[in-house]
Write a protein that binds this DNA or RNA. Structure first.
Length: 591
DNA sequence: CAACTTATCT
DNA sequence: CAGATAAGTT
């Protein structure tokens, strides 16, 4: 069974077919734009609920479970009915929903990510936490990684594909196999079995010959490992030690150019055919650093800027409207930070809101936020090195007020945490899973909040900085809310964040930033399949959603002119009205 | 004692 | 059996 992560689909129009498809794919929500602050609040609860649920599950079936009241969502007035389209109440039993267990399937993708991380870390440094960190897979826990690591070290994990194709060798004294000789010493940090895509049988043979556990069965293993172990322990400082490996290898930007030249283009083709316009890619000259950057004193940041532009390029390339020149200007402006509301307004005269407009707006915002944030110092903190924190930080200015999330006081990141406090719905009080400063909760939270934030930010930025009304006055409503704009905003946001926080990005851990940005065509792309967010313009719904890998995609924006129709929204995935109610109920428990 | 590894459970 | 969880170790 495929376990989808949660994601939300946002569309210009409601379309039953699309909704159904996406929901079947595991989407929790299908939203029709525009969505407003209330929706954001709702989405936030979404995250909250997940966390609470997690905590509850952790506490065992203990309390609360049967106390869960089903609250009517309207009582909490968290969600505008118009924005969130839930199905009719299906008679899904409450418990069924609540009980839905977190079961992480190690898909090929996830596993290869795992292996990638492992290789990156290298022998002797493969610790669950580090792997988790490098993997940067939202939702994944250390324990899960550890468990998987164990399996892989023993070489007794089979990919789903393998499982399917390879029948179990029945008979053959295999009855109680899978017993590795129990070594008397522990394998600290050792790499898992490396071979990949090896048919089971061969592997099995291999295993016999070489011994299941250790690559060097005949050597004086004890010595080797003893030695290694001690040195490892000395070396192991989870964040710091690992750092050098992140940069470069995991740098999402390092391969950006290739992407554009090859992969992305390829992917675009079908869409563009549909559009019936010349292939925008051809015109994306802004990939060239020179045409993008004003090449001033940006020295080392160039790489990042370039990468960002590539990302943008990919984004823009789906737009029929935006000209390269505009993009170039945008980029330059991004960089020069000369953008202001006036500037923006000028651009807004275009009928179709040019990306530039949006981008600039966003940039300003980020600027502002950044200035506020004292990010330089902030970024230096190793734990803040996660790109998601950038956005997370921004959230402080946008979030609904009155929330009271627990702070890990006295941590180095009080500021950040404090800011987080403002995010939740009023009265919310989130327990920390581990009671530690940095644990899985923290990690997960970052992810979740990021997503919410981006959603939030996308629309709220307008309000916050240039004023929603002002924006409104200049823009056609629909246009403004178009995915194109949204997408660009986000891309730019991140771009700016990227550009501004060069130091930040010099942290190797920033390599996960690619996860944040997803080109419109990212859906299904190998490179970006694990993005947190996907933006897709002119999404071709004939495109087989089955080909889309939604793992780790939390928010998927799809845009296409579709005839609107009534919301049917009977979900087959069990997350409908009941789900919603539960959530609210959860919240009230924490009020 | 948090994080690791290993063992056991479901 | 894959993955979660408990138990043992450092």
């Amino acid at each position: 069974m495929t376990v989808w992560n949660n994601f939300t689909v946002v569309c210009d129009e409601f379309d039953e077919l699309v909704a159904k498809k996406t929901l079947e794919k595991g989407a929790y929500l299908y939203l029709k734009k525009p969505f407003d602050e209330n929706l954001v609040k709702y989405l936030w609860q979404f995250v909250l609920r997940k966390r609470i649920e997690k905590n509850k599950a952790k506490e065992g079936s203990k309390i609360h479970r049967d106390q869960m009241k089903i609250a009517d969502i309207s009582d909490n007035d968290m969600v505008g009915e118009n924005e969130v389209q839930f199905g009719k109440k299906k008679d899904v039993s409450n418990s069924e929903v609540v009980r839905r267990k977190d079961y992480t399937e190690w898909t090929d993708d996830l596993h290869s990510k795992f292996m990638k991380a492992v290789k990156q870390l290298g022998e002797g440094r493969c610790y669950p936490k580090a792997i988790l960190y490098v993997m940067n897979s939202p939702g994944l826990t250390r324990m899960q990684v550890a468990s998987h690591l164990q399996k892989c070290r023993r070489n007794n994990w089979r990919s789903p594909k393998e499982r399917k194709h390879i029948r179990r060798p029945s008979g053959q004294g295999s009855s109680s196999v899978s017993h590795e000789p129990k070594s008397s010493f522990r394998k600290f940090g050792t790499m898992p079995y490396l071979q990949e895509n090896v048919p089971n049988q061969q592997r099995y043979q291999d295993q016999i010959q070489r011994g299941p556990e250790f690559p060097l069965p005949t050597l004086n293993i004890n010595n080797i490992f003893a030695q290694e172990e001690s040195s490892i322990q000395q070396l192991y400082h989870p964040q710091l030690q690992v750092q050098p490996h992140y940069l470069g290898i995991g740098n999402p930007f390092s391969s950006a150019q290739n992407n554009i030249g090859g992969e992305l283009k390829q992917q675009h083709t079908p869409f563009f055919g549909m559009l019936g316009s010349q292939d925008p890619i051809m015109r994306n000259t802004h990939y060239r650093p020179n045409s993008v950057l004003n090449s001033e004193d940006h020295h080392s940041e160039k790489d990042y800027n370039f990468a960002l532009n590539v990302t943008k390029g990919a984004t823009y390339s789906c737009s029929r409207i935006v000209s390269d020149t505009d993009i170039g200007n945008t980029t330059m402006n991004d960089y020069n930070l000369n953008v202001n509301v006036n500037n923006v307004t000028t651009y807004s005269s275009t009928t179709m809101m040019p990306n530039t407009y949006v981008g600039n707006v966003t940039i300003n915002e980020l600027r502002a936020t950044n200035a506020n944030a004292n990010f330089q110092q902030y970024a230096r903190e190793q734990n803040m090195s996660d790109p998601r924190n950038i956005v997370d930080y921004l959230f402080q200015n946008l979030g609904p007020s009155g929330a009271n999330l627990p702070n890990e006081q006295d941590s180095d990141f009080d500021q950040v945490y404090s800011d987080d406090q403002n995010l939740g719905p009023s009265g919310a009080n989130l327990p920390n899973e581990q009671g530690s400063d940095f644990d899985q909760v923290y990690f997960d939270d970052q992810h979740n909040i990021l997503c919410i934030l981006n959603i939030y930010g996308i629309h709220f930025y307008y309000c916050a900085h240039i004023g929603f009304q002002e924006y409104w006055d200049h823009k056609d409503y629909n246009t403004m809310m178009s995915d194109t704009n949204v997408g660009n905003v986000t891309v730019n946001e991140l771009g700016v964040a990227n550009a501004n926080f060069e130091e930040y990005f010099s942290e190797q851990n920033m390599s996960g930033s690619s996860n944040i940005i997803a080109a419109p065509d990212a859906v299904g792309s190998n490179e970006k399949e694990n993005c947190d967010m996907c933006f897709d313009f002119d999404f071709d719904f004939d495109f087989d959603l089955n080909d889309v890998n939604f793992d780790n995609v939390d928010f998927l924006f799809l845009s296409q002119e579709l005839p609107s129709c009534d919301l049917p929204n009977e979900q087959s995935n069990g997350f409908d009205q009941t789900y919603c109610d539960n959530q609210v109920s959860d919240l009230s428990n924490f009020a």
